[in-house]
Amino acid sequence: MNIFRLVGDMSHLLAIIILLMKMWKSRSVAGISGKSQILFAIVFTTRYLDLFTSFVSIYNTSMKVFFIGTSYVTVYFIYQHFKPTYDSNHDTFRVEFLIVPVGGLAFLVNHEFSLLEILWTFSIYLESVAILPQLFMVSKTGEAESITSHYLFALGSYRALYLLNWIYRYYFEGFFDLIAVVAGCVQTILYCDFFYLYITKVLKGKKISLPA
């Protein structure tokens, strides 16, 4: 474990907590893409299948349980509990255009042709594009609540910090995972536009309004 990965995991944890608090306090999922949250639930489910077969640490196991659990609670909030506030008219990204190519790529490009490894690879590739429906929704509605912007900033920062973690681990541990690094770069690049708006606008108290 290194500081980059720890701060990255905490940023990821914070993002999820911000989202859940926003939903619970405002009793609304307005502006949140249910499709992205479904993709995140798929990402965690397919990545943490080794939850019961390989033990790394208490931290690792507890975080995995938390991420899987909260991802399903979030989907439940959007499609059941706070369904009347779900804005399906603006959450129209065609996720099949993500899942099919990502599934095909995971089948062709992986570290080992085994079920668990292909599912893990699928999860890594899917996570890199899972935020697209959410970013698409923000561009369609033309704006995002500031709390949603904070959620996106924390979520985008987590994988950017993981890039630093991989640089650190490469030089100090000789650890290198090309699939995770490439997908992590794609994932972080997708946030660049948002990061720019967040830093130039939200931090000055303005609202984000992506070009609709």
Partner: peptide
Amino acid sequence: EFSGPKKDEL
């Protein structure tokens, strides 16, 4: 035994 990078990250 799986030869790829070890899976110890989230």
